[in-house]
Design a protein around this nucleic acid. Structure first.
Length: 650
RNA sequence: GCCGACGUAGCUCAGAGGUAGAGCGCUUCCUUGGUAAGGAAGAGGUCACGGGUUCAAAUCCCGUCGUUGGCUCCA
């Protein structure tokens, strides 16, 4: 090491002098031994490096530990290598695809040849990984020429790595070796495998090489690791908790919805309680929409083939959707509607429109049917028949921005009323590489994308931009929310559309007595009732806000003698639109309370001799406990106040 | 659509070639009770469906359907 000094700037702004060739690890050691024990990698001038990689000039350096996002990613990336090492030692001759870190853990795609890996073998692989981790092998980086790298993998017979190498430039290629395992890898890695203390391989799945379904399918093994056993246990508990919130499980337990093989896959049946919940949500939005100037409409579930030829749906999706329905005699063809917009366009066209009636906002809870690949169906979040809280706003070009902003407000109002705070607004734009997937002129698309971006900016939404996520007729602003298992779903959506008005030749007469083309905005604050309810169930773990609860109260008579009083009480509450049931089973009160608690019913009204004599109710709140006695009127007031508070936090 | 796993009572699950099991739920009876499970009895199954192997299949093999973890797709 030469004694030439370089200046290292640390995140706190302090600058230290070190000899050239100093490593992140050296610096950590210099700061404290504890830090050195925990340092996983170093961020050098905003690039993540191995902690042991020498730094050869002035630089800003941040030492990364488990607490850092990049530290975790490095840790998991190294864990993927460790898993690969274990796999190679257990199953010699297998070939490797890619093995990146992901949001929670890592995976590696492996070609096992003719062998099938069963999930039963995961513990064995884990054990092998633990042994290898104990060896504390360091991850050694070697820069290697492309020629040598190609030779290495040719000799090894790994065509996947060879394919990856094709795309790499000579001079930028590095190998990493730990123990007996060598991999093509840009790095960085943690100092040695000994940092990996807790290991869990989670599942095995198929994945196409390079994500292309034309390619061979590899076996993907998912795993997660931690520096401490305790962190793994906590993570597994979290997973367990998430499973408890799964809307498919709660939907069954709380009798909200069901599926039937006979009805067909992906076609949900809404049970009475689920329907009550759903209708409350609908009412809530209907009210808000009346206030916002929407006009409700109703249209049929099918539409003539020509409607969809006009709209462009037929050309775009006719082949991969439910096939047409034919009339027996005339041979007419109808399609199940995949969207409500064509019908709404026809409503717009029933008569000539004046600029004075714009914006025209047509709203419908419209049920649509889309053919989804069977492997893609998932509970209520991905189904083949669902109801969109749809509306189409027909407006003048100069009204687009303002209308768009109003729709953002409405969507935020809905999300806020249901306590969804953790969402991102995704600008879903056209894939510039793949324009033939979309209909409409460039100019029109650019304009719509610009308007959406501006509106989102004005509302200061937390946005991400995704190219290739647009609808085929226009760009979208999508509100993305996570479910219990961390999967991200699109709920609300707002879309500007210059194309359908063109295709349907929509017009209005302007102040200048000339014909003009309106612009359409498609929007759905919930997205669909099905997906929204699913995510809502997981969001509140089945403990719905009082105003939405399908069963708000359970009246629990202490014994049979008080059934009449309980029933009269219930009748009175029902008249106030407070719904639930009277538990007239021949059970003790403790049992009735337990069952009502498990059904997550917000309020229990316990009535016995004392209550009947004094015309009171003993109130018990779900998850809280006994609130004491009160008059029925006071209880009604309590409920009404709580509902008002829930709906008033906007 | 692709790769893997799974499908047994209403629900949650055990059983792995030889008479179909448990807990909860349900029905009836006893019990009439005060803030998270009172007691007893009973009903309930073509072990998803269709083929095959076998003296014998819920169990082993093949196919279909459905569910499920991913991948691809998604108006």
């Amino acid at each position: 090491m030469s004694n030439q000094q370089i200046a290292i700037t640390l995140p706190d702004g302090s600058v230290r002098q070190y000899p050239i060739g100093v490593t992140g690890m050296n610096i950590a050691m210099d700061i404290s031994e504890g830090l050195a024990r925990n340092v996983l990698a170093a961020k050098v001038n905003d690039e993540v490096w191995d902690a042991e990689r020498p730094i050869d000039g002035d630089a800003s350096v941040a030492l990364l530990t488990w607490k850092d996002r990049d530290g975790k990613a490095t840790f998991w990336h190294s864990s993927a290598h460790l898993m690969a090492e274990a796999l190679e030692s257990l199953y010699p001759g297998i070939k490797f695809g890619i093995g990146p870190p992901i949001e929670n853990g890592f995976y590696y795609d492996v070609d096992f040849g003719d062998m099938e890996l069963s999930a039963d073998e995961l513990p064995k692989i884990e054990e092998c990984m633990r042994q290898l981790a104990r060896e504390k092998n360091s991850f050694q980086r070697t820069d290697i020429s492309k020629k040598e790298a190609l030779k290495y993998f040719k000799d090894k017979g790994d065509e996947y790595k060879l394919e990856l190498l094709q795309d790499l430039e000579d001079g930028t290629i590095s190998f990493y070796q730990q123990g007996n395992f060598t991999d093509l890898c840009r790095g960085p890695h943690i100092p040695n495998t000994g940092f990996i203390k807790a290991i869990k391989l989670l599942n095995v799945a198929g994945a196409y090489w390079r994500g292309d379904e034309k390619n061979k399918q590899l076996t993907r093994i998912y795993g997660i690791t931690f520096p401490k056993q305790k962190e793994l246990s906590e993570y597994l508990e979290l997973l367990e908790e998430a499973r408890k919130r799964d809307h498919r499980k709660l939907g069954k337990e709380l009798e909200l919805f069901a599926f039937s093989e006979k009805v067909g896959m992906g076609l949900p049946l809404w049970l009475p309680k689920g329907t009550r919940l759903r209708e409350r949500l609908e009412q809530f939005l209907r009210k808000a929409q009346v206030k916002a100037g929407y006009d409700p409409v109703v249209t049929p579930h099918i539409g003539g083939k020509n409607l969809y030829i006009t709209s462009g749906h037929y050309e775009k999706y006719g082949e991969d959707s439910f096939q047409p329905i034919n009339t027996p005699n005339e041979g007419e063809e109808f399609l199940l509607k995949p969207m409500n917009c064509p019908h709404h366009c026809e409503i717009y066209k029933v008569r000539p429109r004046s600029y004075r009636e714009l914006p025209l906002r047509l709203a419908e809870f419209g049920t649509v049917y889309r053919y989804e690949q069977h492997g893609e169906l998932h509970g209520l979040t991905r189904v083949r028949g669902f109801t969109v809280d749809d509306a189409h706003i027909f407006c003048r070009a100069d009204q687009v921005k303002d209308e768009f902003l109003k729709v953002i407000d409405l969507t935020l109002f809905v999300l806020k009323a249901l306590n969804f705070e953790d969402f991102t607004a995704q600008l879903s734009f056209r894939d510039p590489e793949n324009k033939e997937k979309y209909i409409g002129e460039d100019e029109v698309w650019n304009r719509a994308e610009r308007e959406i971006t501006e509106a989102a900016g004005e509302k200061q939404l937390n946005t991400v931009t995704e190219y290739g996520e647009a609808a085929f007729y226009g760009p979208k602003l999508d509100f993305m929310v996570k479910d219990a298992l961390g999967r991200i779903w699109q709920l609300g959506t707002i879309q500007v559309d210059y194309n359908l008005p063109e295709r349907f030749e929509l017009e209005y007469v302007g102040a200048d007595n000339q014909k003009h083309r309106p612009v359409m905005i498609h929007r759905a604050p919930f997205g669909s009732m099905e997906r929204f309810v699913a995510v809502l169930i997981e969001h509140c773990a089945g403990n719905f806000p009082l105003w939405l609860s399908p069963e708000q109260i359970a009246v629990l008579p202490i014994s049979e003698k008080f059934h009449d009083y309980a029933q009269s009480l219930y009748t009175r509450l029902e008249a106030q639109d407070i719904t639930g049931f009277v538990d007239q089973r021949d059970e003790k009160i403790g049992r009735k309370i337990r069952d009502a608690e498990l059904k997550k019913i917000p309020f229990m009204l316990i009535v016995g001799e004392k209550e009947e004599q004094q015309q009171l109710v003993a109130v018990r709140k779900h998850g809280t406990g006994d609130l004491g006695q009160m008059s029925t009127d006071n209880f009604i007031q309590l409920v009404q106040q709580e509902i008002a508070a829930e709906l008033d936090n906007n």
